[in-house]
Structures are given as C-alpha cells and as structure tokens.
C-alpha cells in the first residue's frame, strides 16, 4: 500500500473502532464534544462563514475549510484537497446498458482535478467515495486516463474513502482505502450519518440548489452546510444533483441548510429561504 506517513501535524488517522490498522497520530486540535442543540428553536443563526475572494471559508469542528468554486474543499492546515463522488467511467457504465453517453467524462473529471492539484499543491488528496460509477469502472479506464489518474495519485498521499460499496474499491490503482478518515477534528466519510459528530464531511447526496430571483431560477451544485456538518457537491462531469430541499437532507440538517452555491467563478452562499425545492 502506497500511503506514506504524513509530514504535517494534522495527519491521516483512522478511528481505532473502525479499522484499527493505523495508530492514532497526534492531532492538531482536540475533537470537540458535540454540543447539544436545543430543539424547537425557530430563529436560526447563519453558520460561520466568510466570503474570501472567489471562495467561501467556513468553520467546521473548529477547523477552517475553504469551499472552492470548482466544487472541491481545501483544508489549509492539513494541506488537504477533498473531492467527492467522481463517478469515473459513468459514461461507459451507461453505454454498457445501451445509452451511449460521450466517453469523455472520466477525462474531463480528471483534468479538472489535475488543475486543482496544480494550483493548490496538496499533500493529501481525499476522494470521498463513489469514485467510480460501478465496480467494473477501474477495469474500463482507457490507457490515457489510467496513466493520468496514476500520475495524480503519485503526486501526493491519496486516500479513497469508499464507505460500504462492494467491489468499487479502486485501490489497485494506488492510494489507501479507508471507511472513515479523521483529519484533525474533521471526520470524513462517504455517506453522512444521521447522528453525526460535529465536523463531519460527507458526500453521497450530490447536493444542488435552485436559487430563484428576477423571475427565473438557477440550479447549481453546492456544498450543503449548517456549521456542524458539510455535504460535498459531486465532482464528476456527469453526476447529477439532488435538491438540498429534498427530504433526504432534512434529517441531516434539522435547522435548515445554507447552500454554498458553485457559481461560474465564485462560490456564493444562499440562505435557506432563497432556495426552491423540486428538481
């Protein structure tokens, strides 16, 4: 397994309950206790966030995370770049079943990821699950895309956080595979848990926001965020989205959600009241 011991104080660490394979490394900050949230409180404060240039910075579990307009999350103090739901080889997966979608999605997704890695020079890259659209995806990679992916994996500590997806494990390509990853006070897992510890970052749901105004509306991918947890947008070129007002999000964000919407060049926060449900 090619996963070196990290050089930064924040480190790859695996929860001992869940895999036990790695020993706990020293953490930058203590894992904060989950503050009990008073029920039935109607006035909802905006979660802690700030617009910084093209990005939005948010405080999550005591750590500053930066939502990038490309749909990736940057954790500066760990030099970690997090992307979720790449769904590589989705095009060929549909082609298998007779829908001949353009076979360029993997390349498009990897090229976008490559330019992010160029720009941020991360020490850790986390792919937060559903990295391939199906279990046979890695086998269907063509030579060019396989080389491209492996050259990216070689550039940093690469972690696949895959959750419980049978047969999807892409570890043969390099990198480490984890069910859950602790990054300082942050807990990274593919599928959000209903009773989460504060500081959970997950994917799986592909949040999208529909923002209305000026007599029409715009639908874009977004980060879903409430100050306690964050759900990543899907990064893959062909991945669709689920409206953050869909009932699937309700148990995760009982007090509503702020959408950090991916604009063309910047991330734009939109409060719950401005979001429209539906498709």
């Amino acid at each position: 397994m090619k996963c070196s011991i990290p050089r930064t104080p924040i480190s790859l660490s695996s929860h001992p309950d869940e895999s036990g394979a790695l020993t706990l490394m020293p953490l930058l900050s203590q894992k904060p206790k989950r503050a009990p949230r008073p029920r039935g409180v109607t006035a909802r404060a905006l979660p802690p966030l700030a617009i910084v240039g093209a990005n939005v910075e948010a405080r999550l579990g005591g750590v500053t995370v930066t939502a990038l307009p490309q749909g990736a999350l940057w954790v500066g103090e760990a030099k970690a770049l997090i992307v979720s739901d790449l769904h590589l080889e989705k095009g060929s997966s549909y082609a298998l079943r007779g829908q001949m979608l353009p076979p360029y999605d993997t390349h498009a997704t990897l090229m976008r990821l490559a330019s992010l890695i160029d720009a941020h020079a991360p020490e850790i890259v986390v792919s937060l699950g559903d990295s391939f659209h199906d279990g046979q995806g890695p086998a269907r990679l063509d030579a060019r895309d396989r080389d491209l992916l492996q050259s990216l994996i070689a550039r940093c500590d690469w972690v696949w956080v895959e959750g419980n997806h049978d047969g999807r494990s892409p570890e043969a390509l390099g990198g480490a595979v984890r069910d859950v990853l602790h990054l300082g006070a942050l807990v990274l897992r593919h599928e959000p848990t209903e009773r989460a510890t504060a500081g959970e970052i997950a994917g799986h749901l592909h949040p999208c926001a529909r923002v209305s105004g000026r007599g029409r509306s715009v639908r874009r991918r977004c980060f879903a965020f409430d100050g306690e947890r964050l759900v990543m947008p899907a990064f893959g070129a062909f991945t669709g989205g689920l409206n953050v007002r869909d009932k699937a999000f309700a148990p995760l964000f009982p007090d509503g959600v702020t959408a950090l919407v991916l604009g063309k060049e910047r991330v734009l926060p939109a409060p719950y009241e401005r979001l429209l449900g539906g498709g």
């Binding site: 905006l46 966030l49 700030a50 617009i51 923002v211 209305s212 105004g213 000026r214 029409r216 509306s217 715009v218 874009r220 702020t258 919407v261 604009g263 063309k264 734009l268 926060p269 939109a270 409060p271 401005r274």
Partner: peptide, 18 residues
C-alpha cells in the same frame, strides 16, 4: 451575466446579514 446575477442577489443577503 443574468444567471450569475441571481446567485449574487442571494449572496448579498448573506453579506448584509453578516
């Protein structure tokens, strides 16, 4: 420009609130 403007409108609410 229009689509981005809708998003900016919403974002400005946040900026005001903060």
């Amino acid at each position: 420009a229009a689509e981005e403007a809708i998003l900016e409108d919403a974002a400005s609410l946040i900026a005001e609130a903060m």
